[in-house]
């Protein structure tokens, strides 16, 4: 399946992918409005920086996902290879946060941490394709088919 891949040699640490992610998941159609009205979502992608190397971290959509296994409420599920979160079921126990080996589940501080949230490859918002890859200013994030499953 098509996945998001990151290239740490190219990442500039500008954090724009986070901004575009927060906008894509805000439900707003205007970025200024999304941020100025506080509707911007928690970014599902995070830039790790240090020592001149930066890279983006977001859900790898593992074939055998530990987060899904560990979820005590059945809030995480796999749909066509994409690991989805049902915010209505999430009870905010953070088991998934602890079990994800990549640290890709994010706590939704926008709702005071009541639930977690995560990258769903922009399949359930209006972005059409992963907004981080589409807007990366240095093609450090790409969304492509590399024949892995």
């Amino acid at each position: 399946m098509k996945r998001v891949y990151v290239n740490e040699d190219r990442c500039l640490g500008c954090h724009l992918c986070e901004t575009y992610c927060a906008f894509a998941n805000s439900g707003e159609t205007d970025m200024v409005k999304a941020f100025k009205t506080g509707k911007d979502a928690v970014p599902r992608i995070r830039i790790e920086e240090g020592d001149g190397i930066n890279f983006a971290v977001q859900c790898r959509h593992c074939a055998d996902p530990l987060c899904v296994k560990g979820c005590i409420a059945g809030a995480l599920s796999v749909n066509n290879g994409v690991i989805e979160i049902n915010h209505d079921k999430c009870v905010g126990c953070y088991t998934c946060v602890l079990s994800c080996p990549y640290g890709c589940i994010v706590i939704d501080y926008k709702n005071g941490g009541r639930t977690v949230t995560k990258c769903e490859l922009c399949t359930r918002n209006n972005a059409g394709e992963p907004a981080c890859a589409a807007n990366c200013i240095n093609r450090a994030i790409v969304f492509e088919e590399r024949g892995e499953d």
């Binding site: 500039l12 640490g13 500008c14 954090h15 724009l16 901004t19 970025m31 200024v32 941020f35 100025k36």
Partner: peptide, 14 residues
């Protein structure tokens, strides 16, 4: 400033 969302990308890139 009506538009700036304080993302700080300009700060990081200049």
């Amino acid at each position: 400033s009506d538009r700036c969302i304080k993302c700080r990308a300009c700060e990081r890139q200049c």
